[in-house]
Design a protein around this nucleic acid. Sequence first.
DNA 1: ATAAGTTGATACTTATAATATATCATATTA
DNA 2: TAATATGATATATTATAAGTATCAACTTAT
Lengths: 147, 147
Amino acid sequence: MQITSRFTIAVHIITCIDCFKDEYKVTSNFIAQSTGVNPVIIRGVLSQLKEAGMVNVRQGASGITLAKPLDEITFYDIYEAVDSVKDVGLFHFHENPNMDCPVGRNIHAATDSRLAQVQAAMENKMKQIKLSDVVDEVKSKIKAENK
Amino acid sequence: MQITSRFTIAVHIITCIDCFKDEYKVTSNFIAQSTGVNPVIIRGVLSQLKEAGMVNVRQGASGITLAKPLDEITFYDIYEAVDSVKDVGLFHFHENPNMDCPVGRNIHAATDSRLAQVQAAMENKMKQIKLSDVVDEVKSKIKAENK
DNA sequence: ATAAGTTGATACTTATAATATATCATATTA
DNA sequence: TAATATGATATATTATAAGTATCAACTTAT
């Protein structure tokens, strides 16, 4: 199992918007080119980022822009926005434990809070990572290329 | 996306083995009944737990037993044993970023170490949770039922 | 006003992975 | 040696993610 690529796609999208905002008109097709991902998927992710207040996209009007400073967007914000982990949680609990068995009917309750702790540890770390961290690094790598 | 149910199945299996070791002969079919999971899957997980040195299983010989004290088995040990997250990592990076694009060819390197940090945070928390924690709670819940 | 370009929406297809199922070989033990 | 258990394998089913095709709706520039 893996966390959906929509997450890294979203990071890529935001990086693109910021890096190319002065040079190019950033469209969903432009981003599709840079990411190597289908434009329909890009539009889907853009729509989720828009709903979360991170980007400005308007039907018909080209030119996608950021709606928030990069240091106010965390990995967690994006993770939530693109629905990386549905409300069912990070762990898939086997679905039919036997309620006639003492272990089967109690294992879920005895495990859930601990699985939630693990998920929370992951999410808390994501809250500490800002998009500006990534974009700054990408920009400095690009600068290094041009020497 | 979710972490494979093999993880919670494994927790259930170990709990079963310990809880019923005195009352029943614990077989893969017995466990299949308690978990509501197909016996072939159970045998597969058992084989992984065996490889990791957590259980004793022998072809032909019935009676599965624990090979390690419960307080020496962590969630992380199980997570590793059942291969919850393959070596590709927790995050699925979109696979074809455009190498002709400055962002496309640098985004991966700029993101990877941070994704690894997130995964490590999750795994470190798993190392703190012992199977004895879960089994103790299940046992006390069962005890409470019988009052 | 209209044409060109862009996003929004939807339906369908494809690819992949997890789990279930069926079946039989092999080992143990009474 | 019969009964029972695990090991192994091949196939089917299911769920989900991503790709693709297509067209409607909107914006903007001419």
